[in-house]
Amino acid sequence: MKTYMKFGLLVAVIIGTLGWLAAGGIKETKTYYRTIDEVNKLGNAAMDQRMRVGGDVVDGTIVRAGNEVRFTIHQDALKLNVVYDGIEPLPDTFRPGAQALADGKMRPDGTFHATKIQAKCASKYEAKPVQKQPVHAEKQASL
């Protein structure tokens, strides 16, 4: 049985280490999905957590300055200024009016410092339903 004791110990050590690493990893990178409204309500507490905030990119607010890109997203009447300086180029679908998801943290000056931007576009991979002909085109089974 001694062999099995050794095995048990080794397995426990490995699982323990991985569990510890995983717990640390989750703590460091967990990102809360928040709306702009929720961010505003959190106030200063918002600066402590990584968040993913979504909103539509306001027309004419995208400004490039060196490695930084600044823009404003809005959700209804609420607006949020975002500064992005991550290494990935902005996705091709990122443009005025598109829905953007910004990952990052709030800064004390009230801007959102994003390290990653995802642009969600209805036509990302699946094309929009066909709307070329007069509007009521609908699919129907042929059988």
């Binding site: 990893g25 990178t29 809360y32 999905y33 990952d103």
Partner: peptide, 26 residues
Amino acid sequence: FPVISEKLTGEKISVDGPFFNKVNIP
């Protein structure tokens, strides 16, 4: 994680690349 955390705590939380790297590199 986003699905599980939403079910358990009501908050949607995601973990990202750094989490996977931290566990999977070792």
